[in-house]
């Protein structure tokens, strides 16, 4: 299919359907959970990739979304809290013939697993990471998470949380990620297009998915989803297009000439910036990620923020192995054990 991210992964000519990717396990998320939509989108779009199903692996951590692998009829591992990127790094860098996906949440990826996430991004391991962000701890029943807005009232913060939230897209860009995107659970078409681009990317793709937890944080993304409000607050990024939003594109984003930061302007302002996801310099992508209000999420861009080429970690590792074998010949165990300084006792 000419997708660099999946080069080396065996394909199949047999036509696949969503059913082929659906396991026999009963899905146990709460009725109405945003996770269902993402699962359906992934199961629905994977057949389009035409990959041998047995060469796909889903690795997850701990949390509601991390039950995801059980529902996929592929290889899968439900691991431990926060460690999925590390486990997937070992798998992906030793098995270039696999398409490796990481399923994680805001607590899993950004709290307990923050270190592994940033290092996977920095190394550019060939992984596709789906970060389900519902801005709350669901499985442990409703504590604030690293993406919860400041002042959030939860069981562990009855007087309001004290912490500033992470912006996962800003964080990923700061961690030298080569592919960073954001999408929304309820927008099937957008979700699918972003997932396709993420899978096609070689290196680590991070996709933040705004996902509704209807039990503990219902409506967290309502202003981005509601027909009446969404056009005014949601910025859809398209590579090569001016950054405009509003029902009739009446708003735009331009660079403030004195501060250099991005700000909202009129849609017909001559200074409206053009989105370039492939720019080497991540400055504008970062500035776009900062447009969103950390509390209300108004002016949230969705789409692909950054998509640049950098060699993937596993490919570099394999190249070193090949180079060593080419230069020194295949390993000879007996010669290794013998070494240079030996003596013989007769």
């Amino acid at each position: 299919m000419g997708l660099p991210g999946l080069a080396g992964v065996p394909t199949t000519d047999v036509k696949q359907t969503k059913k082929d990717f659906t396991s026999d396990q009963e899905v146990r998320w709460c009725p109405g959970c945003g996770d269902y939509a993402v699962l359906a989108a992934v199961q629905g779009f994977l057949p389009d990739l035409g990959l041998a199903r047995e060469n796909i692996v889903f690795v997850s951590g701990i949390g509601c979304s991390s039950r995801f692998p059980y529902y996929m009829n592929t290889y899968g591992m439900h691991s431990i809290h926060g460690r999925a990127p590390a486990i997937a790094t070992g798998l992906a860098s030793s098995r270039p013939d696999l398409s490796v996906w990481v399923i994680t949440g805001d607590g899993d990826a950004l709290s307990i697993g923050g270190n592994h996430l940033i290092h996977a991004l920095r190394r550019n391991v060939n992984l596709t990471i789906l970060l389900f962000n519902n801005r709350i701890y669901g499985l442990t029943k409703g504590q604030y998470s690293p993406t919860s807005e400041q002042g959030k009232i939860t069981k562990s913060t009855p007087m309001g949380s004290l912490e500033s939230p992470f912006n996962p897209v800003s964080l990923a860009l700061g961690a030298e990620a080569t592919f960073v995107a954001r999408t929304i659970d309820s927008d099937r078409q957008h979700l699918t297009s972003v997932l396709s681009a993420a899978a096609a990317h070689r290196g680590t793709s991070l996709v933040e998915i705004y996902q509704n937890c209807n039990i503990f944080n219902d409506g967290a993304f309502e202003i981005l989803k509601n027909r009446d409000s969404r056009d005014e607050v949601l910025i859809r990024l398209e590579h090569g297009e001016p950054v405009r939003f509003g029902a009739d594109g009446q708003h735009g984003v331009r660079r403030n000439p004195s501060t250099g930061s991005l700000e909202v302007c009129a849609g017909d302002d001559p200074g409206v910036v053009v989105h370039d996801a492939t720019a080497d310099d991540p400055t504008q992508a970062f500035a776009l990620s900062r447009l969103a209000d950390p509390g209300t999420l108004a002016r949230s861009p969705i789409g692909i923020f950054r998509q640049v080429e950098r060699p993937a970690y596993g490919d570099l590792m394999a190249a070193q192995l090949d180079e060593a074998a080419a230069k020194q010949g295949e390993g000879d165990l007996q010669a290794l054990l013998r070494g240079k300084d030996t003596w013989t006792v007769a």
């Binding site: 590390a86 486990i87 997937a88 070992g90 992906a92 290092h119 192995l321 390993g331």
Partner: peptide, 23 residues
């Protein structure tokens, strides 16, 4: 490396064993 030995210097002890288990 010519023995096809992959060595991964991880970001911490937890990632080190995690990657080994993934492999």
């Amino acid at each position: 490396k010519r023995f096809a030995v992959r060595t991964f210097q991880a970001e911490d002890e937890v990632a080190a064993i995690g990657a080994a288990l993934g492999a």
